[in-house]
């Protein structure tokens, strides 16, 4: 007891002493801690901050021989050529379309699934449903896309099922108009169970007396869902939706570049896959970095805006 008091006093003392003295005292006390965090800081510098500095090549005509520093400046030329090109409108529309359709279906389906699982009367059955629906989350993207490309071939299983409903036998991955559907549907297939975990937890935390009160007032199960379940998980829904809206501009390139081909490019090419193709496949470093920087910047604005809104509405945010 006395010891902690002494520490407290020492702290108050240190607060009044000079900056240098406080630094020295802090370092004497916590040197091991700074030693621990040093490799972590080195990691962030090398893997995150050096590239952030390297992003200045967006304003340079980069040539690998001269390196980042010695390449000549070219101002906003890369940005101008991107905004002036046909790719700007195309990749932006594709990004927004794929992202918004993903949110529409990918965001609502876990909520519905959680509400339905919550209504199951058998605990065992609901455990089985959960275990099985979580499973696809762990399958790798490469395998998912490999299965998709196989199932969507003219004699693939999904195409076959589609022919029962009167569609033509064709390779569905080569039809531009189906790309968004394929992308979003497979996303939902893979993520619906995993996404429901958080809502199930929120539903499990609802006070049982609320249900009793609702039953007393004559509410049946359907009305209980609307009057008890949904209002109770609404804060979770709103928080997650706001945060999801913050990432509306960042459609992952990994799945896109595994699935698209020259035929579906016009509907499938998003900003991040365009950056990947221009930069790494065509070695157009400066231009590609400029496009990436534009995307990063818009992303940051959206994420910060989303967080600020989230903080205002229900005091939850990323920081």
């Amino acid at each position: 007891m006395r010891n902690t008091t002494t520490i407290r006093q020492a702290d108050t003392l240190s607060a009044s002493s000079s900056f240098g003295a406080r630094c020295a005292r802090d370092f004497r006390k916590n040197y091991a801690l700074y030693l621990l965090v040093l490799p972590v800081i080195v990691f962030y510098i090398v893997v995150h901050y050096v590239p952030m500095y390297g992003a200045i090549i967006a304003f340079k005509s980069y040539s690998p021989g001269k390196g980042i520093l010695k390449s000549a400046w070219c101002g906003l030329e890369h940005f101008k050529s991107f905004f002036g090109s046909v790719y700007f409108g195309r990749t932006l529309t594709n990004t927004l379309r794929i992202s918004l359709v993903s949110i529409l279906f990918g965001f609502t389906s876990p909520i519905i699934l959680a509400l339905l699982i919550n209504e199951l009367r058998s605990k065992l059955y609901s455990r089985v449903v959960q275990t099985i629906t979580y499973l696809p989350h762990f399958i790798s993207l490469v395998v998912i896309c490999g299965m998709l490309s196989d199932f969507l071939e003219p004699d693939g299983i999904i195409t076959t099922v589609c022919t029962w409903f009167g569609m033509d036998r064709q390779n569905l991955l080569r039809v531009p108009g189906y790309f968004t559907t394929i992308y979003v549907a497979s996303d939902v297939w893979q993520g619906v169970g995993w996404g429901s975990i958080i809502y199930l937890a929120a539903l499990a935390g609802i006070d049982p007396t609320l249900y009793e009160a609702a039953r007393m007032d004559g509410a049946n199960r359907w009305k209980q869902i609307w009057a008890v379940d949904i209002p109770c998980i609404l804060p979770t829904i709103i928080t997650l939706l706001i945060l999801r809206m913050g990432s509306v501009m960042s459609v992952g390139y990994e799945k896109i570049i595994l699935l698209y081909n020259s035929l579906t490019m016009e509907k499938a090419d998003v900003i991040s896959s365009f950056v990947y193709r221009k930069g790494l496949l065509e070695s157009n470093y400066g231009y590609s970095t400029a496009v990436g920087l534009f995307n990063s910047f818009v992303n940051m604005v959206l994420v910060v805006a989303a967080n600020t809104i989230s903080k205002k509405t229900n005091e939850t945010s990323l920081w």
């Binding site: 590239p51 980042i68 990947y276 992303n299």
Partner: peptide, 19 residues
């Protein structure tokens, strides 16, 4: 803050590749 900032902004794919 130095660490968290990287969650919001990144230099992008190409600069990381070049690094």
């Amino acid at each position: 803050m130095f660490i968290m900032f990287t969650m919001f902004f990144s230099g992008g794919l190409i600069p990381q590749y070049l690094t």
